[in-house]
Amino acid sequence: MSNKPANQVIHILLVEDDEIDAMGIQRAFRKQKIANPIHVAENGIEALNMLRSSNGHGPMPRPYLILLDLNMPQMNGIEFLEELRKDPDLNDSLVFVLTTSDDDRDKVAAYEKHVAGYMVKAKAGEDFLHLMELLDGYWRYVEFPPEKHGVR
């Protein structure tokens, strides 16, 4: 991220109910000296609120990338994706699934909601090392969707 302009800093929304997992990912980011701002939501409802700025902090700054766990209380990952794709303001969001579930049904459901990638935590590597490598490369070369109002 360092080579990108300041206004092009990519925000990361981590939707994860497991505190330890969230801590682990944050540690991984720190360890890799990745300074992108990380926002954490404990479930789908909270994540949607953060994206729609209905909690008073203003909408999620773009460009952003969502790391989504599937097994969560209140609104799980698949339900969250459903709401997200229905929302015209948010339906272009980039989402990576990062979960413990190895179930094909989950994979199928997730890709049907047009996720950018599905990653099982067990394969994310020691200290999410593979995840870090992936993200580093990803946002270096991949163009993110532009501001929607700008397009209009």
Binding site: D18, I20, D21, M23, G24, T100, K121, A122
Partner: peptide, 8 residues
């Protein structure tokens, strides 16, 4: 999950 948490 808790196991991995303990491990971490």
């Amino acid at each position: 999950s808790p196991l991995r948490a303990i491990d971490s």
